[in-house]
């Protein structure tokens, strides 16, 4: 990872991600906002590639760009009564002030801190990731599957109509 290549790639990716991220908020059409969100996700996947984490980059694209964005698009398409307008809000000014303050704090902190540096070439591969997930991190890994099951059960309960529930109670 030497030379100007990674630096140029970093700045291009940063610009794309930030502009797309800003667009998500500024776009007045919900549909356009989702498309810009997809672009943001792709930009973040690019950062993972730059960090030599190819597997996470792939997962980012498959899960966020593929599954989650499609889910959001479906949600927009399948809720015909909901508005498509990513509307104005009275909170615009306070929100803007808050974000500027937060950004200032984070910029200060990021410049102030002595971040630990890794000087060696990252030797990171998918094998090690899999081993780590099923050894040290097996507990969060398994809790995640329980969490998804609970979320599924909950989503079904919230989405069922009263008629379906009445039939169910008779069964």
């Amino acid at each position: 990872m030497n030379g100007a290549g990674p630096s140029i790639a970093f700045w291009v990716l940063a610009a794309v991600t930030l502009i797309a991220g800003g667009g998500v908020m500024l776009s007045r059409s919900l549909f356009h906002a989702v498309l810009l969100l997809i672009l943001t996700f792709i930009g973040i996947a690019g950062f993972f590639v730059l960090l030599s984490a190819e597997f996470i980059a792939m997962a980012q694209i498959i899960i966020y760009v593929g599954a989650i964005s499609v889910l959001v698009l479906f949600a927009i398409l399948l809720t015909p009564r909901a508005g498509r307008y990513n509307g104005e809000t009275k909170m615009l000014l306070p929100a803007l002030l808050l974000s500027v303050c937060l950004a200032a704090v984070f910029l200060f902190v990021i410049r102030d801190a002595a971040w630990p540096r890794v000087n060696s070439e990252p030797h990171f591969n998918t094998n090690q990731l899999g081993e780590a997930l099923l050894s040290t991190w097996v507990l969060p890994f398994e809790i995640a599957s329980v969490l998804l099951t609970a979320a599924l059960v909950g989503a079904i309960m919230l989405a069922r109509t009263p008629q379906e529930e009445a039939e169910d109670a008779l069964a």
Binding site: W137, L139, P140, I143, A144, V146, L147, A150, A151, V153, G154, A155, M157, L158
Partner: peptide, 16 residues
């Protein structure tokens, strides 16, 4: 990581 995912495990059923 465990704390965060445990927090979600307790929260999501409670939202429902």
């Amino acid at each position: 990581i465990t704390i965060f995912i445990a927090l979600e495990l307790s929260s999501i059923p409670q939202y429902v």
